[in-house]
């Protein structure tokens, strides 16, 4: 048997059930021993990665898919590009706003400054999200859609 055959055995066998033949080879072959050691570390890493929690479909996944299947291909592509460009922007803006709000609410401030500051921020957020359904509308999203030079479609978000 060649080293390569032993290495294949190394990959297939569990560490606690090494056959005698392989054990004898590993004792005298440093290269295969090193291979076995590396494989042990890498396969352990794969086992850990396999135990990672899986991402779940977000709410409405199937409905979105069915709507997509119902639309003609051209419209579908345009809609997708729109969602890709805009969706991430909105998600980012929402996250940013949430962080700012949390900071505003949570930062220890001296005296009465804290109340109005967070209230202002909340009011701003309300106004922004009520005006067109998109948070952070004031200085990012609206001004960009209003600008004809931006390569973003003019249609509003079809789903929210």
């Amino acid at each position: 048997m060649r080293c390569d055959d032993f290495r294949m055995m190394v990959e297939e066998e569990r560490a606690d059930a090494v056959p005698e033949l392989l054990r004898a080879h590993l004792e005298k072959c440093a290269a295969c021993r090193s291979y076995a050691e590396d494989w042990g570390r890498v396969s352990e890493a794969f086992r850990a990665a396999a135990a990672d929690p899986l991402p779940e479909p977000t709410f409405g996944f199937t409905d979105r898919l069915l709507r997509r299947l119902a639309s003609p291909p051209g419209a579908e592509r345009a809609a997708r590009e729109f969602v890709e460009r805009v969706g991430r922007r909105v998600a980012f803006a929402t996250m940013l706003l949430a962080t700012l709000t949390l900071l505003a609410l949570g930062l220890p401030t001296s005296g009465p400054v804290r109340e109005p500051a967070s209230a202002d921020l909340m009011a701003q957020a309300d106004q922004a999200s009520n005006s067109n359904g998109i948070v952070f509308a004031d200085d990012t999203w609206v001004s960009q859609t209003g600008n004809p030079h931006r390569p973003i479609p003019q249609a509003g978000p079809s789903e929210k």
Partner: peptide, 26 residues
């Protein structure tokens, strides 16, 4: 088309798993 939704719901977990493991980007 609606029946396709049933198939999607039955197989989406497996599809998500395969994709996640392949591309490693949530």
């Amino acid at each position: 088309r609606e029946s396709f939704g049933r198939l999607v719901e039955r197989h989406q977990r497996r599809v998500f798993s395969l994709i996640f493991h392949l591309v490693r980007r949530r």
